[in-house]
Amino acid sequence: MKRKPIVGLAIWTLVATTWAMNALAGDRGERATVGAPAPTFTLEDQNGRPVSLSDFAGKIVVLEWVNPDCPFVQRHYRAGTMKRLAEKYQSKGVVWLAINSTHYMDKEDNRRWIEKYKLPYPILDDHAGRVGRLYGAKTTPHMFIIDTSGKLVYRGGIDDDPRGTKNGGALNYVERALDELLTGKPVSISQSKPYGCSVKYAEKSTAY
C-alpha cells in the first residue's frame, strides 16, 4: 500500500519528463529527442567515403557539429577539447563523428581542418544541412551522444563555459555522460543549452 504513491509519482514524473522533452524538441519539427532512437543518416567523410550511423550499431557514438570558421570551435580546437575526448574514449569503443553543416564548406575544407589538428576522427560533409536540421543542431559546437542501443542520451553544449573563462574549471557534459555510460549509469545531465555560433545552414534544404 505504502509504495503505491511512490510508484505513481515515479510514473507520473516519467510521463511529465517525456512530455517535457517532446515540448523541448517537438515544436520545431526536430526528430532527435533524448530518450528516443537517434535518427539514422548517411553522409560522406572528407575522402568521399560514405559513413552511416548504422555502421556503428552497438557502439556509443558522439556527434559534434563543427564549423572551422566559428570562434567557439576554434577556441576548443586550440585547447584540444574534442581531440582529447575522442582519443580518451576511442580505446573504450566510443565512436566520434564530427559533422559540418556549414553551407559554404566542402570536403576539402573538412580535410584541411583534420590535417591542421591531426584529428583522429572524420568530419562528415552535410553542407546541404539535411542531417543538421534532422537533429536540430543549432550551434557549433552542438553535441549529441547515442548509446549502445541507438538511443539519443545527450544533446547540448560541450561544457558549461560559453565564454571560455573557467580555465580548466568547466564541467564537460560530454565527458561526464561518457563516463556514466561506460560505467553502466544513466546520463545524469541529458540535456543542456548549447552555445556557439549559429549553424550556417543553406537557405533551403530538402527533407531528409
Partner: peptide, 8 residues
C-alpha cells in the same frame, strides 16, 4: 531568424 529555425 536564420535558416534551420535558429532564433536569436
Amino acid at each position: 531568424i536564420e535558416p534551420g529555425s535558429i532564433i536569436t
